[in-house]
């Protein structure tokens, strides 16, 4: 799998690490009840198909970015 790093260009997936679901919204600090925080931290969807994810170019420039990836086919879309 090849991932287009916004800074370094297209690189091998072995240089990156997955950073989680980028569609979730974290409750604001000091807000939200225990259930809202519990759901944010511990409950995950397992979507099949197009998805937006956080990735980090951990062995390269170390920047975090959002990436579109199809979880069923590993087709890579845009990075931002």
């Amino acid at each position: 799998m090849r991932i287009p790093c916004p800074h370094c260009g297209e690189r091998d997936v072995s240089e990156f690490r997955y950073g989680g679901d980028a569609t979730k919204t974290r409750p604001k600090h000091g807000e939200g009840d225990l259930k809202a925080w519990h759901d944010y931290y511990f409950l995950f969807d397992n979507p099949k198909g197009p998805h937006t994810e956080y990735w980090q170019h951990v062995l390269g420039c170390r920047h975090w970015f959002k990436l579109s990836r199809n979880t069923a086919t590993n087709e890579i879309g845009e990075a931002s």
């Binding site: 370094c8 690189r11 091998d12 072995s14 240089e15 951990v58 062995l59 390269g60 420039c61």
Partner: peptide, 24 residues
């Protein structure tokens, strides 16, 4: 190293931050 080392791609004056055995 997971890079394209063909002379027409990785040319003199270029560098890449990458990983070897999970170390940068």
């Amino acid at each position: 190293l997971p890079l394209d080392f063909h002379p027409t791609v990785f040319k003199p004056g270029m560098f890449a931050m990458t990983g070897l055995h999970h170390t940068p």
